[in-house]
Design a protein around this nucleic acid. Structure first.
Lengths: 273, 273
DNA sequence: TGCGGAGAGTTGTCCAGACATCTGTACAAG
DNA sequence: CTTGTACAGATGTCTGGACAACTCTCCGCA
């Protein structure tokens, strides 16, 4: 794997066979960043995959290496890739997930007992956005959206009750029976052509309502988190919205402000593939 | 203010009269970034102040403009400065504050009624760090730390009960009677020589304990946020730690993950001074 | 008085290299 | 088998320019 490009790298460069419009008002580094961003969104560049070396990219698009580096810096700042000195640039794991999967204590405790979190789907259908939802997602009212509602549980206890909406952009069939990863980030990636990179959450501490108490099978006075979550793409357009209720006596939320993603989610330290 | 440097700018350049060691293994751009970072921490560069133009900085330290731009990019990523095309680079407002000051609904409602938040100091003293606190702050046990405990209230209601620790580095007198801004970020800036840029928070939803219920004067079954907050400087060293209790029926927490600070805190759009 | 253009100042983008530093492999020496 | 050296390949740092785009002020002209 030295003198010549590997078959895989060649394929990547082939799939990304686009050209940079040097007369465009859009900067070259931004065009390059967009090309790789789309490759990541499409799934052609999976987490852990190595990008071509900077010199190769520069030669491929007919731009200087410094410009390529600026593009990579953009992607790094967005958390889409990370670089390793002397080794290369790699696609990062998506870091924005669901709060449910950041529950430190709970998660560790569950995994020790070998009990993965279980998902029970209550509803999944396509709905037309009402005024409120349309406003939250910045789309016209009536836009078709995916609607999910389910319960997360582990170790025999119900832990969370979640409702989620995603603009239904892709013509991708969805099966009600399977729900491998219900995180909002995954749903967005699966059903739209956008990649969420930022996230806004509004939290409240409250007591369960009667309906929630029945669904979660907890006493009436249980404290819970109410979490409203909106995901945005790199251009700050909303791409998904969800509202969740988490048991306060079983869940902790950890919030890292201003941290680079690789600092607490060292995505793919392993080799490429 | 055209042909010659203003008196203020000249003073700034004078105060920052350091040299770049080109033989040091520390990169030049990092040295420059540190110089301005320290200027900001010391308060010589206050929010809204314009940095010297890139060409001026480059000439001052004998490095190329691109290297200066890399230093500014570092400071921008850390949220310490922001740039305006065609105008200049400006010192940003510190964005990491206390959760208490991000309580959207509450804050807006209070201000409408013209009632600013009130702070009642319960305790303020210097303590020697025990094993637990020393571990949280990554300092040897016995290190002298500032200890604060107070209650935040507004509109006649007690809203939060906060406890904070800061490593006592500066030889700065502290007055028990005055507590203008009790945010952890401000305390760190006032009593240490470090600038917090990242923050980790662990949240829980719970019911008030008896002690907290008495302090906040709320019923026994009130839901509350338990928030543990650790502030770190740019090198990921902890510089402050605090634990807070917020009334869940009066507070909302908003969390912006992956957003640049200027996106939701447009620091000082006004002119320099 | 009001408007528009010129121009200076500043940041944004881009180039074509140069050398430093780090990683992993291959191979020889012990 | 272990250690050290050499080397290729990759990212990190840095230079010294060039031109573009944007902001603001000032001045002349209607």
């Amino acid at each position: 794997m030295s003198g010549q490009l590997s078959a895989k790298t060649a394929m990547i460069m082939d799939n990304l066979s686009k050209v940079i419009d040097k007369n465009s008002p859009i900067p070259a580094y931004y065009q390059v960043a967009k090309i790789f961003e789309e490759g990541i969104i499409r799934g052609e560049l999976t987490p852990g995959t190595a990008l071509p070396p900077e010199n190769t990219i520069a030669a491929r698009y007919g731009i200087s290496r410094m410009t390529v580096r600026q593009a990579i810096a953009e992607l790094t700042a967005a958390g889409l890739v990370y670089t390793r000195k002397g080794r290369g640039t790699y696609v990062a794991k998506p870091a924005i997930g669901d709060i449910a999967f950041e529950l430190g204590d709970f998660d560790a405790g569950i995994r020790k007992r070998g009990l993965g979190p279980a998902v029970r789907l209550l509803q999944a259908k396509i709905v037309k956005a009402g005024a409120e939802l349309a406003a939250k997602l910045s789309v016209p009212a009536g836009t078709r959206c995916l609607f999910y509602r389910y319960i997360l549980s582990a170790a025999g206890e119900h832990l969370a009750y979640e409702t989620k909406y995603v603009v239904y952009a892709k013509q991708k069939p969805f099966l009600e029976t399977e729900l491998p990863d219900p995180s909002l980030s995954s749903l967005v990636a699966a059903y739209t052509d956008r990649m969420p990179v930022t996230c806004k959450r509004v939290l409240q501490a409250a007591l369960v309502t009667e309906e929630e108490a029945r669904a979660l099978e907890v006493p009436a006075a249980t404290p819970v988190f109410l979490v409203e979550q909106t995901l945005y793409d790199r251009d700050k357009k909303p791409v998904g919205w969800g509202k969740s209720v988490y048991r306060g006596d079983r869940c902790k939320l950890t919030d890292y402000e201003g941290w680079r993603k690789e600092d607490f989610n060292p995505g793919a330290v392993s080799d490429e593939q």
